[in-house]
Amino acid sequence: MEKPRLIREDGLRHDGRRPDELRPVRISIGVLNKASGSALVEYGGTKVLAAVHGPREISQRHILLPDRAIIRCRYHMLSFSTHERKSPAPSRREIELSKVVRESLEPVVISEVFPRTAIDVFVEVINADGGTRTAAVTAASLALADAGIPMRDLVVAIAVGKVSGTLVLDIDEAEDMYGEADMPVAVAPSIGLITLLQLNGVLSREEFSEALKLALKGASQIYEKSREALRDRYMKVKVEE
């Protein structure tokens, strides 16, 4: 990928967005038949599918917990989801992201309802254009809601980046690759809890506060869209006459 001019002379970004503008967000819920819950979330060109199975009994009984369900999570990229083919073997990046995505969900899932069971979350990155882990968190939380697993709140996630010295919301792949910082944030807005926070890059203390505010602003927009998508599944059921 050629390095584009990340901030144009008119102050807009290389794809014409304002610094605080999200890419188009599309959310579909219940897209799979056999999973207990599922969701497909797109942030611009990033397309992520999440499926939930369970709560269920599993064969590895030694990892079960006596007083709550465990959450198992796999973040996985399809081999053709990236510019260069990704080897199907799990990468160190995928192993880390499986952990941080799981840990973004742990604070909201009311796991005590299902002791000695596992709730399995499978995240499949179908097309990667920046922000795959944040789309993954949003999709996973919606798939959990679709599976009817009690949660204190939905978790939605969005990344803020620093490109050519400017803080921008929802960075795409070019901005991630050529920018100075990438900061994914996941939040449960109703209960005011930030459940994922990473910073890859260097920021001053002031830049950080500003970046966090920008992320929370973007997250609240995605939160509204998520709630709407969950409701629409029922609001749009037409009575058959």
Binding site: E103, M183, L197, Q198, L199, L203, R205
Partner: peptide
């Protein structure tokens, strides 16, 4: 005195 990375764990 800059922040060079963060990880919630």
């Amino acid at each position: 005195s800059r922040i060079a990375g963060i990880q919630k764990s």
